[in-house]
Every structure is written in structure tokens, then in C-alpha cells.
């Protein structure tokens, strides 16, 4: 009996989920690759050549990458003091509550959060009003509908996401390690450098990776905070489908966006694999 029950047939359990992923994710992806390679005269890279020779598209790609990288870097830097504070300065019992305080807005609509920043950053928004109240002078902020506003909006999101993943890594550090190091005379800075930072790294990197993915594909913050004049690639994709409806161009842009994610993610993935290998040795 024990022998036969050890072999559970996985397929009845796995098939529904797998089928959904194959039909609505894998096949569409393959289709998209084919579509991006299809041109009027057969197969070829013409769509990609056209993309890279269209200035407003390459500029949009450049903006997408700059925006995602800046927001990810800023967000991931902010995540360290936040996660560090929650894990090492807060009583164990209260930690989840402090984490929830940072993460709570995370669970609400992305669009709504971007919109709420309009109220604060706009030229007659809360900040402008506050400055006028104090100085008595009316100011034109000029922050809303700029790249900087987009970066700020996305960086805020990244900091929440990275705090979450970094928290997971830091909270599982064995406190005995830190006590031992301290008993042997290690200074706080050295404890951070040699114990906390290396052990928190995987969580941090996971957060950076996920942040980048969200940022590079986002349309809401660039539209609501960055404005429509200097669009990023995701905004252009949105407008193609509801406007010109050039499907092979949409597929080409999608593939380029996917390649961007893969290329920027590759160093992180390789790092993860090397690390796993090193740990298993």
C-alpha cells in the first residue's frame, strides 16, 4: 500500500493550470514572435529595422529604460533603511504590523494611487498651496507631467515592493550569527557588511528584478504623472491597439519590451544561479 500511494499521478492535478498557461500565455507569446517577424514580403527583421529607424519609438524605448532603471535604483535604496528598521529596531511581535503599514497602499489600485499624486504635485496642488501658505508667494511647481514625476511615482512603488522582499530575507537571518559576531568584538558596521548585507542580498535582488519588470511595462504612472507628450513604450502600445491598430508593430514593440526585461534581468538571474551553485557546493 505504501508503495502505490507514493506514486501520485501529477497530471490530473497539474493539467488544468498548465492548459491555461499554454493556451493563453505560451501560444500567444509564440504567435507574437511570429507576428513580429512577419512582413509583407515574407519572414524577416523588417519590423525591427523599422522600429529602430523611427526616432519617436527609439526615444520611447530609451525613456522606458531610463525611467525603469532610475525608479528601481531609488526605490531599492530606500528599501534598506525601511526593512532594516522593521526587522532590527521593532519588537518581534509588532514587525508584521509595521510591515503592513508600509505595504497597505500596495493592495489598492495602482491607477488610483498615481492619480492621488496628481492632487499633491500639480501646480495648484497641495505642495504648491503649502508653499504659498508659508512664503506668501504663488509658485509654479512644474513637477507634474514631467519625467521626474514619473520616476518619483514609480520609485515609491519600487520601494514598497523591495521593502517587502528584503524584509523576507532579513527576518530569516539567524540572530545567533549576529550575537556571536558581536561577542567576538565585531563593530555594528562590520556586522552589517559581513552578515546582514550578504544574507539580505537575495531578497533585495528579487525586489529589484520585480520592480524593474513592473516599471518597464507600466503605462499608468507615465500617463497620469508623466503626461502624454513624451510617451514610454507601454503608452505607445496602448495607443496602437485603440488607435492605428497596426498589429505587427504592436507585436514588435511587445517583443522589444520583453527582450529589454530579459537583458536587464539576465545579470540578476545569472547571479542567482551562481549563488545557488556556490551554496550547494
Amino acid at each position: 500500500m505504501g508503495g502505490s500511494s507514493n506514486t501520485i499521478n501529477p497530471w490530473p492535478f497539474l493539467l488544468p493550470a498548465l492548459l491555461l498557461c499554454i493556451l493563453f500565455f505560451l501560444i500567444p507569446t509564440v504567435n507574437m514572435v511570429i507576428l513580429s517577424l512577419t512582413t509583407e514580403n515574407g519572414f524577416g527583421l523588417d519590423n525591427f529595422k523599422l522600429f529602430f529607424s523611427t526616432p519617436h519609438l527609439t526615444q520611447a524605448l530609451y525613456r522606458s529604460i531610463t525611467l525603469a532603471i532610475s525608479a528601481t535604483i531609488m526605490g531599492s535604496l530606500v528599501a534598506w533603511p525601511l526593512a532594516y528598521f522593521i526587522v532590527f529596531c521593532v519588537n518581534k511581535k509588532w514587525r508584521p504590523l509595521f510591515l503592513l503599514a508600509i505595504l497597505a497602499p500596495f493592495w489598492t489600485s495602482f491607477t488610483i494611487r498615481a492619480f492621488s499624486w496628481q492632487l499633491v504635485l500639480s501646480d495648484n496642488g497641495v505642495i504648491a498651496w503649502f508653499i504659498e501658505l508659508i512664503t506668501g508667494m504663488s509658485v509654479t511647481l512644474g513637477i507634474l507631467y514631467t519625467m521626474n514625476a514619473s520616476i518619483f511615482g514609480l520609485a515609491l512603488f519600487c520601494s514598497m515592493l523591495t521593502t517587502f522582499t528584503l524584509y523576507g530575507a532579513l527576518v530569516s537571518i539567524d540572530t545567533k550569527l549576529i550575537e556571536a559576531a558581536s561577542n567576538l568584538g565585531a563593530k555594528p558596521f562590520n556586522i552589517f557588511k559581513d552578515i546582514i548585507f550578504p544574507l539580505g542580498l537575495p531578497g533585495w535582488i528579487a525586489g529589484i528584478f520585480l520592480s524593474f519588470i513592473v516599471c518597464v511595462g507600466d503605462y499608468a504612472v507615465p500617463t497620469l504623472l508623466g503626461g502624454g507628450l513624451k510617451p514610454v513604450l507601454a503608452q505607445i502600445m496602448l495607443s496602437i491597439l485603440k488607435g492605428t491598430y497596426d498589429l505587427s508593430q504592436a507585436a514588435t514593440i511587445a517583443i522589444i519590451l520583453a527582450m529589454t526585461v530579459i537583458m536587464c534581468g539576465l545579470p540578476l538571474i545569472i547571479y542567482g544561479m551562481l549563488r545557488r551553485k556556490r551554496l550547494s557546493v
Binding site: 507574437m32 520585480l210 511595462g217 507600466d218 503605462y219 502600445m237 504592436a250 511587445a254 520583453a258
Partner: peptide, 10 residues
């Protein structure tokens, strides 16, 4: 780990 917009457009 795929931008949502790519799932949608696909």
C-alpha cells in the same frame, strides 16, 4: 515575471 501589458497584448 512578465510585464502585464505583454500578457494582455499577446
Amino acid at each position: 515575471v512578465i510585464p502585464m501589458i505583454l500578457i494582455g497584448i499577446g
